[in-house]
Nucleic acid binder design. Structure first.
Lengths: 226, 226
DNA sequence: TTAGTGTGTTAAGATTTTATAAAAGTTGAA
DNA sequence: TTCAACTTTTATAAAATCTTAACACACTAA
C-alpha cells in the first residue's frame, strides 16, 4: 500500500514542516510550490492517494487545482485556508474538497485529519455501524435495535445510551462519563436522568435488560454474561 | 491531582471569563496579563499542567511564550488567535502548540478542548489498568476483581481498598496512610472502620485473603507469598 | 503471668445510593 | 394551537453499603 500524498504550498518552510510530519507518520510525500506544479505532479504520478492544497498559490490557486483533480479523481483533498471568509468556504465546498483546515493549525490536527480521511477512503473502518452483543443487535445506520431477533422500539436518547453502553462494553462507566458521552458537553442536568433512561432501556430490552449492570456507588456497566 | 492552568491574555475581561469557566470545571487557574508575566509565572510555579496563550500580548507575544515553554516542557498549550493573525502560519506551526482557537469562540468549545487535551496528556488515565498479583486480578477500567479466575463482587470501598493495597504491595501501611489514600483527605472517622473493611475483603478473597497481612501495632501489608 | 494495648468479629442503625413512579416541561407534527 | 411522544425533574420507597460500638481475642513487655 502506497499512502502517497501530494502537498502544494508556496511557502517552502511550511512545505518542509508538513512533509516531515507526514513522513514520520509513514506517508510518502510529494511536494509542489505552486498550483500548476501540483497539477503537473498529479498527472505525472497517478498513484497519488491524497492531496493537501494551500489556497494561496502562484500560477493556479488551490480551488482550481482541486476542481481539476476532482474532475478526474475521487481522492481525498484537504484545503488549507488562511482566512475563514464566507466566500472562501463557499468556494471550497463547490470545488469538491473533503476537508478544510484554517491556518494556523497544529501539526497534530493535520495528521489526525489526514489519517481519518485516509481510513475513510480506504474503507478501513467501512460503515461498520452494526454492533452485536449477546443477542442484541444495534444498527447505527438504520437507527434500529433488535433483541433476540425481535424489534425493539427505542427513543433517541435511549438509543444513544444503549449505543454508548455497547461501545463501552465491559467498562465501568460513571454517571459523569455517561453524561459527557451521551449528552452535551456542558449539560448540567441531574445525574438521576440517566437512571430513568436506564430503567426504560432495561424494561424494553426484556430479560436482556440486565446486561446493564448497576455498579453501586460508581455507575453502570454493560456486560454480557458468559 | 492539581489540574493547574495558566491563562495569559491582556484583556482582563476575557481573562476573568475564561478563568470562571475553567474554575467551574475544577481547574486551578493562574492568570497573566502579558507574555513576560506568563513566562515568569510558568517558571515560578513548575506544577502548571496546561497553558492558554493569547497571541497578541504586550512584552512578549504568545508564539514566543509558547516556544519558550515548549523548550523545557511538554504540557499542552492552546493558542488563541484573532482573525487578522490567522495568516501567521509558520509561527503557529513551529511554536509547538497543541491547539489553536480563533476568536471569537464560545467558552463551551474552549472548555471542551481543554478537557480533551487534559485527558490526552494524562495518558487517558485508565487505559488498561490491570494489576495482577498472586492470582488476584484487579481491573480498574471494568471495576472488576477476580481471584483464581472467579469473579469477586466488591463494594466501592472494598474495591478501592484492595486497589490501594495492590498498588502498594510489600509496603507496610499504617491506618493513617490508608485513610488518607482511600478515604477523603480529612476523614475524621474511626480507625476501626478499616479493620471492618479488611475483614470483608479477606472473606471475599477466600484463601487469598491473607495476602493482606496484619502488622501488629502498625497497620497492614499486602504481600503475596513466594 | 498479667496488665495494657492493638486487632478481629459481629450486628445494628445511619448514611448513601439506586429504583420506581408520577408529574412537569419540551419538542415537533398535524 | 393542540396533541402526543419524549425528556427531564422530583418525590418517595427500597436497597446496599458504611460506620460505629461493644466485646472477645491476640500480642507484647515487664
Amino acid at each position: 500500500m502506497s499512502k502517497k500524498i501530494l502537498i502544494a504550498d508556496d511557502e517552502s518552510r511550511l512545505l518542509k514542516l508538513l512533509s516531515d510530519y507526514l513522513v514520520r507518520e509513514g506517508y510518502v510525500v510529494t511536494t509542489a510550490i505552486d498550483g500548476q506544479a501540483a497539477l503537473d505532479k498529479f498527472y505525472m504520478d497517478r498513484s497519488i492517494d491524497m492531496a493537501i492544497l494551500d489556497v494561496m498559490m502562484p500560477e493556479m490557486d488551490g480551488y482550481t487545482v482541486c476542481r481539476e483533480i476532482r474532475a478526474v479523481s475521487d481522492i481525498p483533498i484537504i484545503i488549507l485556508t488562511a482566512k475563514s471568509e464566507e466566500s472562501d468556504v463557499l468556494n471550497g465546498f463547490e470545488c469538491g474538497a473533503d476537508e478544510f483546515i484554517s491556518k494556523p493549525f497544529s501539526p497534530k490536527i493535520l495528521v489526525a485529519k489526514v489519517n481519518a480521511l485516509y481510513k475513510r477512503a480506504h474503507g478501513d473502518s467501512e460503515e461498520n455501524q452494526k454492533i452485536e452483543m449477546g443477542g442484541i443487535v444495534l444498527d447505527k445506520k438504520a437507527h434500529q435495535v433488535t433483541a433476540g431477533g425481535i424489534n425493539v422500539n427505542l427513543s433517541v436518547k435511549e438509543f444513544e445510551l444503549l449505543a454508548y453502553f455497547m461501545e463501552n462494553a465491559d467498562i465501568a462507566l460513571s454517571r459523569d462519563k455517561i453524561l459527557n458521552g451521551v449528552w452535551e458537553y456542558d449539560y448540567f442536568g441531574d445525574a438521576r436522568t440517566i437512571d430513568t433512561h436506564v430503567k426504560k432501556l432495561r424494561a424494553k430490552l426484556g430479560k436482556r435488560g440486565y446486561y446493564i449492570k448497576t455498579i453501586w456507588g460508581m455507575g453502570y456497566k454493560f456486560e454480557v454474561p458468559l
